[in-house]
């Protein structure tokens, strides 16, 4: 039997169907928890962010238009922002995340990552792409993604000139964009 698409599960959540939330949690919690653990490196903190994330999904199901956006990508955008906010003790990302959610919810993703096999292949491609980047580029882009650092902060932390950091991050993102579509 084909699994229910996210759009159907979101519709069911709007009617108060807890089982739909349970199913979505089963689909995406491992993907999200892996990312949260990588960012936070703290099991309890990652668990709390994960729980809050799905609670937000439940509360805001009526506002999510599945036809216009990818639910797992939206979850990753919000989840990453929450984790980095927590990691760095900043509230700016949390405050902005609703806006980001709106933006994310206006785009039809080119990657159907609802499908677990597609997601797994994409994960392999991303890991491979990161692995192929020169070490300094990979380090710069990982500091930005997983530590939430700006280019200036990366320069300050690593002692590398800001201009060099900018070049490295831009070059790395150009390479990744080709893979991420």
């Amino acid at each position: 039997m084909q699994p229910a698409p996210d759009s159907a599960l979101v519709d069911r959540m709007r009617t108060g169907d807890e089982a739909a939330l349970s199913t979505l949690y089963d689909h995406y919690s491992a993907m999200l928890f892996g990312m949260l653990m990588r960012i936070l490196r703290d099991q309890q903190a990652a668990e709390e962010v994960l729980q809050d994330l799905f609670l937000q999904l439940w509360r805001n199901a009526a506002q999510f238009d599945s036809a216009r956006g990818s639910l797992p990508a939206w979850l990753m955008v919000i989840g990453r922002n929450r984790a980095i906010s927590r990691l760095r003790g900043r509230r700016d990302r949390e405050v902005l995340e609703e806006e980001e959610g709106d933006y994310a919810n206006t785009f039809v993703s080119g990657q159907n990552i609802e499908d677990e096999s597609v997601r797994a292949e994409l994960a392999r491609n991303i890991s491979a792409a990161l692995g192929q980047l020169p070490v300094e580029q990979r380090q710069a882009v990982e500091l930005a993604y997983f530590e939430g650092m700006t280019q200036s902060e990366i320069a300050s932390q690593t002692g590398i000139p800001l201009g060099t950091v900018k070049t490295r991050v831009r070059t790395a993102m150009q390479s990744l964009r080709q893979i991420l579509g």
């Binding site: 919690s29 491992a30 993907m31 999200l32 928890f33 892996g34 990312m35 653990m37 990588r38 990652a46 668990e47 994960l50 956006g69 990818s70 990508a73 939206w74 990753m76 955008v77 989840g79 990453r80 980001e100 933006y103 994310a104 919810n105 206006t106 785009f107 993703s109 990657q111 990552i113 997601r119 994409l122 994960a123 991303i126 890991s127 990161l130 882009v141 993604y145 997983f146 990744l176 964009r177 991420l180 579509g181």
Partner: peptide
Amino acid sequence: QQQLAAARQRTALMGLAAPPAVP
């Protein structure tokens, strides 16, 4: 703004590089 929405989703997918972990 729409292009940024695309960029946000694309960028967020980089998180897939982290190995899945079961809570």
